[in-house]
Simulated scan of single mutants.
Amino acid sequence: MAVLEAWYMDESTEDQRLPHKLQPNQAVSVQELQDIGVCYWKLNADIYENDPALQKIRGEKGYSYMDIIDVHPDKLPNYEEKLKMFYEEHLHLDDEIRYILDGRAYFDVRDKNDRWIRIAMTKGDMITLPAGIYHRFTMDETNYTKAMRLFVGEPVWKAYNRPADHFEIRKQYVDSLNAINCFTGLIAQGL
């Protein structure tokens, strides 16, 4: 089973789709991601429609809404414009849950010291970004991913670009950084 790969990013302004690893690389562990509220699961994307592990996560977390999006220049209208929009640093008032069914992409999140961490998402990777965390999304050089988007209740698409520190959810997120606890039952079981 592949392990999630994450690292601290360099300061380069080159193409956002490049890895942007520091030299030497500074890897970030799943535990370090959990410490800032990012929860991770590795699932079998080949059986996502009937996967008991996914059904368990959805039931325990209350993820009642689901849709699937193909992000590719031929499949997503105004692809380049949307990619620029996704890459603007922002937060949401609700958790952001993404499950990669095919392809690859990156999520970048800020750590406790405001440094960028890049999370390389591949087929079978599922993450939850907590409400109030600053983050952004981009493709890698392949320009393709198919992702399931999950929500508690109706989907909320509103992003608030930084600065957005005035939102109560941001204050709650910052205050709770030392008390965040991800649902780790499936990770501990190797699912």
Rank of each mutant, 00 (worst) to 15 (best):
Ile133Tyr: 04
Ile47Leu: 06
Ile180Lys: 08
Leu4Lys: 01
Ile187Cys: 09
Ala159Val: 13
Ile97Lys: 04
Gly62Thr: 05
Asp165Leu: 10
Arg115Cys: 14
Ile119Met: 02
Gln16Thr: 14
Phe167Lys: 08
Val109Arg: 02
Asp108Trp: 04
Leu76Arg: 10
Asp46Ser: 13
Tyr8Lys: 07
Trp41Tyr: 07
Gln189Thr: 14
Val71Phe: 09
Ile36Lys: 03
Arg115Val: 10
Glu81Asn: 11
Gln16Gly: 13
Ile68Val: 14
Ile127Glu: 03
Ala53Leu: 11
Met148Glu: 11
Ala147Ser: 13
Ala120Leu: 10
Tyr79Trp: 08
Arg98Ile: 01
Glu80Leu: 10
Glu60Lys: 11
Gly37Ser: 03
Gln23Lys: 15
Lys42Arg: 15
Ala179Ser: 14
Lys75Ile: 08
Ile133Cys: 08
Trp41Leu: 01
Leu43Ser: 04
His20Cys: 06
Asp111Pro: 01
Tyr65Thr: 13
Tyr144Leu: 09
Phe167Tyr: 14
Phe137Tyr: 03
Ala179Ile: 12
Arg170Gln: 05
Pro19Gly: 07
Glu89Met: 08
Ile127Thr: 05
Met66Thr: 14
Asp102Phe: 01
Met139Asp: 13
Tyr160Phe: 12
His20Tyr: 06
Asn44Trp: 00
His92Thr: 09
Arg136Asp: 05
Lys21Ile: 08
Lys171Pro: 05
Asp108Thr: 02
Glu11Gly: 12
Trp41Gln: 00
Arg118Ile: 00
Phe107Met: 04
Lys42Pro: 02
His166Cys: 10
His72Asn: 15
Gly62Arg: 04
Ala120Phe: 13
Leu76Asn: 07
Leu150Ile: 02
Thr138Ile: 09
Gly190Ala: 06
Gly103Tyr: 01
Tyr63Ile: 06
Val156Leu: 10
Met1His: 11
Ile97Gly: 06
Leu76Gly: 08
Leu191Asn: 12
Gln55Trp: 01
Ser29Asp: 06
Gly132Val: 05
Glu81Ile: 15
Tyr144Trp: 11
Asp35Thr: 06
Asp114Leu: 05
Leu43Arg: 00
Glu81Val: 15
Asp140Asn: 07
Thr128Met: 13
Gly59Ser: 15
Tyr8Leu: 07
Thr128Lys: 15
Gly37Thr: 00
Arg136His: 08
Pro73Arg: 09
Asp35Gln: 12
Asp67Ala: 07
Leu18Gly: 02
Ala120Met: 14
Val152Trp: 04
Ser64Asn: 09
Met139Phe: 09
Glu5Ile: 15
Leu101Phe: 04
Arg149Ser: 01
Ser176Gln: 09
Gln26Ser: 09
Gln189Lys: 14
Gln31His: 15
Pro155Arg: 10
Lys84Gly: 11
Ala120Asp: 12
Asp111Met: 00
Trp116Asp: 02
Tyr8Glu: 06
Val174Tyr: 02
Leu91Tyr: 01
Asn181Cys: 14
Asn113Ala: 12
Asp74Asn: 14
Glu96Tyr: 01
Trp116Ser: 00
Leu33Pro: 00
Asn143Ile: 08
His90Arg: 03
Ile68Phe: 06
Phe137Gly: 00
Val71His: 08
Lys75Pro: 09
Ile68Gly: 10
Ala6Tyr: 01
Asp175Trp: 12
Thr145Ile: 12
Ala131Val: 07
Trp41Ile: 02
Ile36Cys: 00
His92Pro: 07
Pro155Thr: 12
Ala131Glu: 06
Val30Ser: 02
Asn181Gly: 07
Tyr87Trp: 11
Leu83Ala: 15
Gln26Lys: 14
Arg118Cys: 00
Cys182Lys: 01
Leu186Arg: 09
Tyr48Pro: 10
